[in-house]
């Protein structure tokens, strides 16, 4: 081995890599990329996580062909539960067509030969970063969250040894100190995303960086919610119909964001809105962050302030299926 590469060129490698230049490369990898043993290990962790809602289960996270912090945890969870009969939807910031969502969807279309969709209702597995779809989920659906930092106490206590004890002993006073500080300084709780929740009355959990607007959707949800943190090597879960409460004070109850505007495209007044800068003179509009929700509403004839324009644009560039 020390002699380096042998004389034979091109060099022999045991297997080819997945790449655009190698459309058949996927065949050389196991179904859904991970080997079956790894998937079983992850599924065991998922079961444990479902059995103890909100508890962070350490798992032997594998290196994935995507960078850490870009959804490696979510991808490993999805890879472990997905099968050929599944229909996969991937969203990032609520949208199906942001680059990272596209990249992950392409990955699974290639390595798991799975059908993909942009329609929330049609999906059996939805992998998400930073949002929960507006359309209520139903029984049988699985929502997989990508988690950058699973530890809700990390900003207050950097040490893992200590935070694990705090969870074990349910010592959560410090979490409220953070909320207290907000009110003392700003007159209100100024945490807008990654807003901590109490799961099943026992574990404080990070809902991942979803806006607090989405927090109420977590509780009592008929779908299975799974959370994967690849870099931090943790898995946690919220089983269907589980109590999830956003932390607050009796005299400063939890409240979600509200907008004065409606979606400029579909006119929705109850969805999470993204602000879009239109020009350099302060012109802006607000549109649904959930692209499927917005599109579905428009297809049903709802229009917003700029909806007609957009409808024309949409007609010119149809929103096709992902594959």
């Amino acid at each position: 081995m020390t002699s380096g590469i042998g004389a034979a060129e091109p060099m022999q490698t045991t297997r080819a890599a997945i790449g655009d230049s190698d459309p058949d490369g996927a065949d050389r990898y196991n179904y859904a990329y991970l080997d079956e043993q790894t998937k079983r290990m992850i599924r065991r962790c998922l079961l444990k996580a479902l059995a103890v809602p909100g508890y962070q289960v350490p798992f032997g996270s594998r290196e994935m062909p995507l960078p850490y912090g870009w959804g490696t945890g979510g991808i490993q969870v999805t890879a472990s539960i997905i099968g050929p009969d599944d229909v996969l939807k991937v969203i990032d910031q609520g949208a199906d067509d942001t680059t990272n969502a596209v990249s992950i969807r392409r990955f699974f279309a290639r390595v798991a030969a799975v059908e993909t969709t942009e329609a929330t209702a049609e999906a059996t597995v939805i992998q998400t970063r930073h949002r929960i779809p507006e359309q209520p989920l139903r029984e049988g659906q699985i929502l997989v969250y990508q988690v950058p930092q699973p530890e809700p106490l990390r900003k207050l206590e950097p040490r893992e040894g200590e935070t694990r004890k705090m969870h074990a002993y349910a010592e959560y006073g410090l979490m409220h100190v953070r909320l207290y500080e907000d009110i003392a300084r700003f007159g209100r709780i100024a945490t807008t995303y990654s807003y901590p929740v109490m799961v099943n009355g026992r574990h404080v959990m990070s809902p991942t960086p979803i806006p607090k607007f989405d927090n109420p959707k977590m509780g009592g949800n008929p779908a299975v919610q799974l959370f994967g943190a690849g870099r931090e090597k943790r898995i946690y879960a919220v089983p269907p119909y589980t109590d999830v409460r956003s932390l607050d004070f009796e005299d400063h109850p939890f409240a979600i964001q509200r907008w004065d505007e409606c979606c400029a495209l579909c006119g929705a007044g109850d969805s999470y809105l993204d602000e879009v800068i239109l020009d350099d003179r302060g012109g802006r509009m607000f549109v649904c962050s959930d692209t499927d929700h917005c599109g579905t509403r428009r297809a049903r004839g709802h229009t917003g302030r700029l909806g007609a324009d957009a409808a024309t644009a949409a007609a010119a560039k149809p929103r096709g299926a992902a594959r």
Partner: peptide, 27 residues
């Protein structure tokens, strides 16, 4: 002390640790 938590928060921490969830009362 927690040096990055306000004086009020420092005093209130133990109250919150034993379950006080009323901001006005803690304050």
């Amino acid at each position: 002390l927690r040096m990055d938590v306000s004086a009020g928060g420092n005093v209130g921490e133990r109250l919150m640790a034993v379950g006080d969830r009323h901001y006005g009362h803690i304050r």
